[in-house]
Simulated scan of single mutants.
Amino acid sequence: MMVLLFAVEILVQVGVPSVGIPVSKWVLGLLGGVCWLALDRLDIDGRLRLFDAARRVGRRWPALAGLALISLFVYLLQVAVGWLVLGPGAIDLLVFASPDAGVAASSWELGLIFSAGVPFSTLLMFAPPMLLIEGMSEGRSVVASVRLVLRHAVPMGLLALLTMILVFLAPATFLLPVLLTGPWLLCVGLVAFRDIARQSREALWR
Rank of each mutant, 00 (worst) to 15 (best):
V79N: 02
I113D: 00
S18T: 12
R198G: 00
I165N: 09
A97I: 03
L175M: 15
G189M: 09
L5H: 07
G182V: 11
R151E: 11
P155W: 00
P17I: 03
V146D: 06
D92Q: 14
F73I: 06
L162D: 03
A172H: 07
L131Y: 01
L131K: 00
L31F: 04
V95A: 02
S107K: 07
L5C: 11
L148K: 05
F114R: 07
P88D: 04
S107T: 14
L123V: 09
W83F: 14
R49S: 11
V167E: 03
G157M: 09
L162G: 09
G33S: 11
L84S: 08
G66N: 08
L39V: 13
M1F: 12
L77D: 01
L77N: 03
C35V: 10
M136L: 15
S141C: 07
A97L: 07
A104F: 02
W36A: 06
A63R: 09
R49H: 12
V85K: 02
P99Y: 02
V74F: 07
Y75H: 08
V103P: 06
P99V: 14
A153V: 13
G117L: 07
V167S: 01
V3H: 07
G189K: 00
R206H: 13
M156H: 15
Q78H: 05
L67C: 10
L37Y: 00
V149W: 00
L30T: 11
A172D: 10
I21W: 15
M1R: 11
P88L: 04
G33Q: 03
S106E: 08
W108P: 00
I113M: 12
P99D: 13
F96K: 07
G29P: 01
L124N: 03
T163M: 10
A197D: 00
E138F: 04
G87C: 05
L37T: 02
P119V: 14
D52G: 08
A172Q: 10
A90I: 11
C187D: 08
L180C: 01
D92V: 04
L132S: 02
D43P: 15
L169H: 02
R49E: 14
L5N: 07
I196R: 10
F174Q: 12
S24Q: 06
V57A: 04
E109S: 08
V149S: 05
D195S: 14
M130W: 00
L94I: 06
P99W: 15
S98Q: 04
G182E: 12
L162Y: 09
P119K: 12
F174L: 12
G182I: 13
L148P: 09
L94W: 02
T173W: 11
I165D: 08
A54R: 01
C187Q: 12
V143K: 14
V16E: 04
T181G: 04
L28P: 13
A101P: 13
M125S: 14
G189I: 06
G87Q: 04
